[in-house]
Design a protein around this nucleic acid. Structure first.
Length: 195
DNA sequence: AGGACGATTAACT
DNA sequence: GTTAATCGTCCTG
């Protein structure tokens, strides 16, 4: 019998958002679909959104029907719709009641790339190198909102199987915040796996 | 009730 | 570098 890789713990997500963001780089996102297909990719780029005081964070408007998952337990997904056509995937961090999350911005596909390619109709390099490309390639939409990725039998989770000690992500300002006031616009809360 | 805008992407010039 | 696509959310009145 093959044993299932265990999901990253809720404790992992419960720490400060920038710590979670740094340490999740290089780990594998796994999605198991009902038909048995397995999609997997190494996380290469994430972005932090931290609290109601962060004017780039959706929680700046407080708790609403949209932002409710941000206030949920760490390890909850926050999947939202934007630009009238794109889905974005986040993982909630810090303590329940404090709205913070990391946005997935880039992956390197390691399993199921052919399935992703059918959905995206692009070459390998362009398959998951953007936040909305990831959700399209993995088939993630509102039905994955407020999903618990720490549940023992979760169908989507981060694999707890890479020590990740040698990776020092590179930090830059977050992407796409053209209208966000300073200082939030320029905070280096985007983390990229260097190399 | 109406309008601006968005944690984007692909397809242009 | 610029722009259309496309619609839910939030802010204004």
């Amino acid at each position: 019998m093959s044993s299932r890789v265990s999901p990253l713990s809720r404790q992992f997500f419960s720490r400060p958002t920038l710590t979670v963001a740094r340490e999740i780089i290089g780990k594998r996102l796994i999605k198991l679909d009902p038909d048995g297909t397995k999609l997997c990719g190494v996380i290469l780029e994430v972005e932090a959104y931290i609290g109601e005081s962060d004017l780039a964070c959706h929680a700046r408007a407080g708790i609403t029907s949209r932002t409710k998952p941000l206030y949920g337990p760490p390890g909850t997904t926050y999947v939202y719709f934007t630009y009238g056509m794109h889905w974005m995937l986040n993982f909630v961090t810090e303590r329940e009641g404090f709205p913070a999350a990391i946005l997935l911005r880039a992956l390197c596909p390691t399993e199921g790339a052919s399935i992703m390619q059918k959905r995206r109709r692009q070459g390998f390099a362009e398959l998951t190198n953007g936040p909305a490309k990831i959700t399209q390639a993995l088939g993630i939409d509102e039905s994955w909102n407020a999903y618990d990725v720490c549940a023992p039998n979760a169908r989507m989770f981060i694999a707890d199987d890479h020590a990740n000690l040698e990776i020092t992500p590179c930090a830059r300002p977050r992407v796409g915040l053209g209208n966000t006031p300073e200082p939030w616009r320029s905070l280096s809360w985007n983390l990229v796996h260097n190399k």
